[in-house]
Design a protein around this nucleic acid. Sequence first.
DNA 1: GACATGAATGTGACCGGTCACACAAGGCGC
DNA 2: GCGCCTTGTGTGACCGGTCACATTCATGTC
Lengths: 348, 348
Amino acid sequence: MNVTGHTRRPASIRDVATAAGVSYQTVSRVINGHPSVRPATRERVLAAIDDLGFRRNATALALASGRSRAVTVLTANTTHYGYASILQGIEEAARAASYSVGIGVLESAAEDTVAAEVRRAADAGDGLIVIAYDPAGVRALDTAPGLSADLPVVGVVETPASPPGGDRPWVWTDDREAAYQATRHLLSLGHETVHYVAIPSSTRRTSARTTGWRQALKEAGASEPRPVQGSWSPAGGHAAGARLAADPAVTAVLCGNDDLALGVLRALHEAGRAVPDEVSVAGFDDAPHAAYLTPSLTTVRMDFTGLGRAAFALLHGVLEKSAQVAPRPVSVPELVVRESSGPPPARG
Amino acid sequence: MNVTGHTRRPASIRDVATAAGVSYQTVSRVINGHPSVRPATRERVLAAIDDLGFRRNATALALASGRSRAVTVLTANTTHYGYASILQGIEEAARAASYSVGIGVLESAAEDTVAAEVRRAADAGDGLIVIAYDPAGVRALDTAPGLSADLPVVGVVETPASPPGGDRPWVWTDDREAAYQATRHLLSLGHETVHYVAIPSSTRRTSARTTGWRQALKEAGASEPRPVQGSWSPAGGHAAGARLAADPAVTAVLCGNDDLALGVLRALHEAGRAVPDEVSVAGFDDAPHAAYLTPSLTTVRMDFTGLGRAAFALLHGVLEKSAQVAPRPVSVPELVVRESSGPPPARG
DNA sequence: GACATGAATGTGACCGGTCACACAAGGCGC
DNA sequence: GCGCCTTGTGTGACCGGTCACATTCATGTC
């Protein structure tokens, strides 16, 4: 144990070598667990390492080995529950694998902003995970390969519209299926149709959640109202909800996430429409607050941290060829029925 | 512009040098804007840089210069709104200063867990920001200097109990004052006293918010109920709220954050106690959902991203001595009165 | 016209690791 | 007793930058 407080420059392998009376290469061998080092020598080196408080310099290691054992996460936002949970899942898995995690926030979807962030990420780590639920993320995911040829990129995406997209390095939960189930749940309660307040779609066309909703309506032969474009926030949900509340025909609303649902609930309340007696509302994500709202929110539970872990695992597999490039990890969200959904009011 | 797709090893300054017909040192000078380079030479070098798509290798730079222009943020959680916002503020400021941000999650407050994370942080970047609102963060903040002598550490903390703590590199918002104001608000509405549901205290004794609450009660000559120990989550608030709801004497509840308040609201609802008619509730943070709850939540708005930016600014000042070590940045939270607080019920 | 001065550029060492290779000593086969 | 393989260890170059110092040439000064 080193007790000298004023360790100026931290000890290098050469310092350790001198202290142990061996060459720096031998120290390197000990550090890396190379077999052919005589036990006695190893002991001496380990003692010196301990004594000098040696820690392997990550920067030098990165320069020499060409790999930094660091990944960068690009996201449009760190505060949304889903995004934050994914990040936490990534960090957890990365930590377990002794990788460090860097983070970059995409402040806009503008091409140059995104490009700048991707480049920063490219020379900060040796892999990139993009949370691509929104236009900024999608653009990053699209342009990254072009901007930095040999930077492995993994995307956390919505359920891809087309069949599993060849072998793109993507992870997702089946939110199309989840939206389908949530919609069916509402229809099965007796609602004639289900309105939808959408999160901003990641693709130019329409989001996976929208697709699942639409599919359920179609199968049930229900009419398909125009989705209301929301944002990610309660404020967006509130605006959308206000419009829906004004239409007496609306009896069931599915929301792209729980924050939107919260805004919708509020708008319905302000319009004097009772939930679930007059209108049913369902959300998406099962954020921590969903269960504690009044009425508590029927929603779809998403395993975001699991998604984050899977994203890292996939990237890890690419970075260390050894690790198998895991079979596309897809988890299935689970519908959680609470107070906010119920049968429609008897026909007036 | 380089159009060759297969850039094997990326160009180094020596490649650029050869291409431009100068020495690598001249390239280095151009990159760093050294004055004494003949304009014509500079042009040639710049052309070569552009042509080869040269990007300065961050790792080599870090090794040679001894500084990596990276900071690490240590936090117990990335999903809480406050924490996530602080992180976002840090990232924003760091990006503006061309620093990259790494993140480490403290999974427990156990000594070795924390120590391991601090060490990882120490050799990942050249500065550390610790979000120290909870035991894990506090321990990290406390032990970091001992674990890694010359690693600059900045703490995002609760309002320190003692006078500004010498010259500790800390940033905070005056949440003691905020709690004081929120409590006074409730008292001024006519409540005899205000109950408090606490977030886990960061110190062994009591949190700044608790102190502010206590101070307001004392000044008003109100009785001081035992604070109810909550967690950070709605679930914790719900448990605490259930207990408080059972006591008819309770007419006003201040909560350590908005998630707790949400749980308390729910518990009161379940107990059949109307808010604000029978019981007033106030939160802390002004999370995005606070305004959209029913009833909407009276709370204290905290400038978390500003706090994050300040934390980075402080660390930045330490890292680059040039930058002034900003005067301790303290922002003042603002009380936002909404529907959840009102006068107590007329004495029955 | 000799010499100090400064601008423009190049050379070598270094940061702290890794890798490829050289080399000495010991065990084994024949 | 010689060659040969294996084990243990050391040497030198390298990763891609920076820094300190040397060098060249043009200019100004007396």
